[in-house]
Design a protein around this nucleic acid. Sequence first.
DNA 1: TGCACGATGAAC
DNA 2: TTCATCGTGCAC
Length: 184
Amino acid sequence: MARRLAREFYDRDTVLVARELLGKLLVHRDAGVTRVGRIVEVEAYLGPHDLAAHCARGLTPRTRVMFGPPGHAYVYLVYGMHHCMNVVTRAEGEASAVLLRALEPVRNVEGRTRGPGLLCRAMNIDRRLNGHDLVSTALHVADDGTPAPRVIARRPRIGVGYAGRWAKRLLRFYIGGNPFVSRP
DNA sequence: TGCACGATGAAC
DNA sequence: TTCATCGTGCAC
């Protein structure tokens, strides 16, 4: 039986939260259907000083949720067509988040889940869920007791080449050897 | 009010 | 490597 993560889980160091999200279950209940996927790949975005993060532009209408309290979903549209889902970390005012990049399908998940856009499509997640509380029934992360991954790989984040030295930081984490990772 | 540019994915 | 496609942030 899976146990929903409490807000305290998210109210911690972003890299720690990112690593501990690996192996957890993302749950979305929507129109009577509960979709579940195991998180196998994530990226950490550390705050306004992190030039790869949206919040590096400061508090704007889009980044409002990132600056808000922990345990909420930050969902945005990229390239005019794909959605990306983040989990907001750390205390209110400390803008940081973890991008969910890939899932292993567990229940009611159709289509591919390798990559942040495909993950959202398969889980039926879009901007309507931006700002949604993750300490909720409809959308949350759960722990089903699966042991922590034995090997966690660290790599540079994807698609942030514009971020100078921040592009080189090893802030992408994934379960070593997992076949559902987007770019092993 | 206009415009350059994406935390992507798919095709070529 | 190219392109689809549109919201955002910033210049003017």
